[in-house]
Amino acid sequence: MSHTAHIPSHRKPRRSASKLAVRAGVAGGVLSTLAMAGTASASPAEPKTESTLEMPVLNMDLAAEVSSAVTTAAENTRLAAVEGELTAQEESARTGAAAEAKQAKEEAQKAAEKKAKEEADRKAEAERAARDSERTTLRTASASDSGSGSGSAKAPQGTGTVTAPATGSAAAIVNFARAQVGKAYVMGGTGPSSFDCSGLVQAAYRQAGISLPRMSQAQSSAGTSVSLSALQPGDILYWGSKGNAYHVAVYVGGGKFVGAQNPSTGIVERSLSYDKPTGAVRVL
């Protein structure tokens, strides 16, 4: 081979000046960018803004609030006490009113019973007076006939009644009953100055040491029933039904009885024909 033949060179080909300039410019730009980035990263970070929750401001006086609460509690306690006292007074008033109403009712009932008895007594007295008026002529004629036959008037007697004089306990009962004739009739009276019908019978039997019930209803059920045609002195006469009699008296013999009739007549001795009783009982 000729020494002038072309032999490839192992050296790198030279770059042109223009390419080097371009490359130098690019490198410079990169370095400049990196420098700026470094500067930016080296600069201190801005502080972060933190949000804070603001608490509400308590705009009140604690001492004043406590004082107000205490005052309110005290007032509520006072009102409760007043309300309790009013309730107690109302309950007491209701209790008192109920007691007064009960007492008034009892008094009214007693007054009604008293009025009813007095009305019954007045009615019975009026009926007896009417019958007595109708029998006046017959009694007068009977007394005249008896007087002309014996020289003295005899008391009219019930048909079949026993006329033997009272003795023993019966005498004590009869004598006491007759001793009360003329005294006043007072409802509920038991002596010694006034009696009602059952009070007189009870007091008369007490003279013989016998205790009788107070009311006429119970007295009419005492002892043994006897016929009005077989009466003996000291027997208890009753008007009405047995066990529910409204009037009682003491048979004193001779066809007569002694009884506390009513306020207008008082205690009297009358013939059985004056007001015939319904029945009789014997305790002796």
Rank of each mutant, 00 (worst) to 15 (best):
P263V: 02
G147W: 09
S142Q: 11
G25E: 03
A184W: 00
P263D: 03
Q109I: 10
V26C: 06
K105Y: 00
Q180K: 04
S92A: 04
R94Q: 13
V82L: 13
L272I: 15
A27H: 06
A24E: 14
A170Y: 03
A126K: 07
A155R: 12
F176N: 05
Y246K: 11
R128I: 07
V252H: 06
W239D: 03
G253K: 05
S241F: 03
D61L: 05
A80H: 08
R139K: 07
G243I: 04
D132Y: 01
A99L: 15
T72E: 04
E107H: 14
M187W: 08
K117D: 03
C197T: 02
E106W: 07
S148D: 14
S9W: 01
A249E: 04
A111T: 12
S150N: 01
G240L: 07
F257W: 15
S193V: 06
E91Y: 04
S18K: 10
A88G: 02
S221D: 10
P44D: 09
K110A: 15
R282A: 07
S229H: 04
G191V: 06
R135Y: 08
R206A: 03
D145S: 12
V57C: 15
A98R: 01
A69G: 13
V250F: 04
L31Y: 02
V248E: 07
I210M: 03
H3L: 15
R128T: 08
L212A: 06
Q261E: 12
Y246A: 14
T95Y: 02
Q261D: 13
P8E: 10
